[in-house]
Simulated scan of single mutants.
Amino acid sequence: MVLSGKLVKQVAIRLDGDLFYEIYKYKQHRISEMSPGSIKRVDLHDGEWGVVGSVIVWNFIHDGKEKVVKEVIQAIDDGRRSLCFKVIGGDLMQDYKTFLVTIHVDTMGEGNLVTWTFDYEKLKENVEDPHTLMDLCLSVTKDIENSNIVNSN
């Protein structure tokens, strides 16, 4: 009975990697404008944008349903362009005992790579791995890329 899991996916983006990292660090509240079909609202619940310990609440559409997730910024590594968020409330906590989301951006000149990592522990054996949630994150990544490329032209 394996309840712990790890899911890792990468997506290449044409958008400047530093800009993508800055959006996720300081401007998450703007992501609903860049991906309105998926992200309805992102609010700072406690603390400051881009500061460890700050709490952020996401309202989004997943598998056709409106959902809410509350997360705390657990770690920031500007040198590696990496952010780690720990889910502390909301709909994911109905299926998972723990859920960590790490976003890492590799900048490689004209091409950049965004790596999403989910580390999680399910509450029950019959809970599915979060593949559709990962698909949502990859889709939002592309929406951010497309929005910022269009706006920069």
Rank of each mutant, 00 (worst) to 15 (best):
D135I: 02
H131M: 05
V68R: 07
T102K: 14
G64P: 00
D78K: 11
G79H: 13
K124R: 15
E66A: 13
G89Y: 03
D63Y: 00
D77R: 05
V87H: 02
E128N: 06
I88K: 07
H104P: 00
W116N: 13
I73T: 07
Y96K: 04
Q94H: 08
D95F: 14
E121Y: 05
R80D: 10
Q94P: 01
Q74W: 06
V87A: 09
V140M: 03
G64Y: 00
W116V: 07
S82W: 12
K124S: 13
K70F: 03
D77H: 10
I88C: 08
M108R: 15
T132K: 15
D95Y: 13
I73S: 05
M93R: 15
F60L: 10
I61P: 00
K124P: 03
D95M: 10
T117V: 10
F99S: 08
H62W: 12
N59S: 07
S139Q: 11
H104C: 05
L100G: 03
I76K: 10
D63M: 09
D63L: 13
D78T: 13
I61F: 04
I88N: 03
V101W: 01
D129G: 03
D106C: 02
K124Q: 11
F118G: 08
D119G: 05
V101K: 06
W116T: 09
Q74C: 00
W116Y: 11
R80C: 09
M134N: 08
V72M: 04
E71F: 06
K122A: 01
T102I: 08
I61V: 15
V72N: 09
D135Y: 01
G109M: 09
Q94V: 02
Y120N: 11
M134V: 07
E128W: 02
E66V: 14
K67H: 09
H62T: 06
E71C: 01
K97S: 14
C137V: 07
D63H: 04
D78W: 03
D91A: 10
P130T: 10
A75F: 02
I61R: 08
K70T: 15
N126H: 15
P130I: 05
V140D: 00
Q74Y: 13
T132H: 08
A75R: 15
K67V: 09
S82L: 13
Y120C: 06
C137I: 01
L92Q: 14
T117P: 00
V140H: 01
D78S: 12
